[in-house]
Design a protein around this nucleic acid. Sequence first.
DNA 1: GACCAGGCACATC
DNA 2: GATGTGCATGGT
Length: 229
Amino acid sequence: MENMNESNILVNIYRRLEAHFGPTGWWPGDSPFEVAVGAILTQNTAWVNVEKAIANLKESEWLTPELLITVDDDALHEALRPSGYFRLKTVRLRNFCRYLVEHHGGCMETMAKLPVERLRLELLAIQGIGPETADCILLYACGKPVFVIDAYTRRVLGRHGIAEATAPYEALRHYFEEHLTRDEGFWKEYHALFVYVGKDFCRSRARCDGCPLRPLLRGREPAAWPRDP
DNA sequence: GACCAGGCACATC
DNA sequence: GATGTGCATGGT
């Protein structure tokens, strides 16, 4: 944290968001495995639809890596249908489950014992798991200190001129990781709060009223209303 | 009826 | 390296 000014700005942003939204308790889920499943199913999908798919998996008692690998194709399609992209997500979910079973005996806690850098590379090597999904699994399912970047994060950064919203994923991740105290509980909440403020206030110019970041960031906002990266 | 939602892989230029 | 497209459903 060599640049204390930058760190202070980010901490102040967090305080504003935390004061406005309160604790988010992210990520919702009854187990690390369920969190990982949710991370895959929520790709480009509203969470409310993911909940329906996860409820289907629980109802069918398929919410284990071993069973998700072996259940019937059509049956899994139907279970995942509410979360969209169901053919794609059937494949992606199974890719992750096969990795978990073959490399860690199907145990998330065993997987989480790997060093974060190595585990991140292994997750990224799975077809269907990109940087955001990998980091959600690392942070919320494994408790690893990685800062998740998503479309909402970029939107908030762009709207308020906090950082270069179109910067590469890794550049933004490192920006937060270098300027914030390394604390996975803190980072879990911070990412969730970016999603909340991005949804409620940064979606359009018309929704800016009452944004908890406006009093703090006035003067730092870009002259032009940026488009989503 | 367009647009968006807690992305990713792949093709093409 | 940037840009475009397919993937699917449900809410606004």
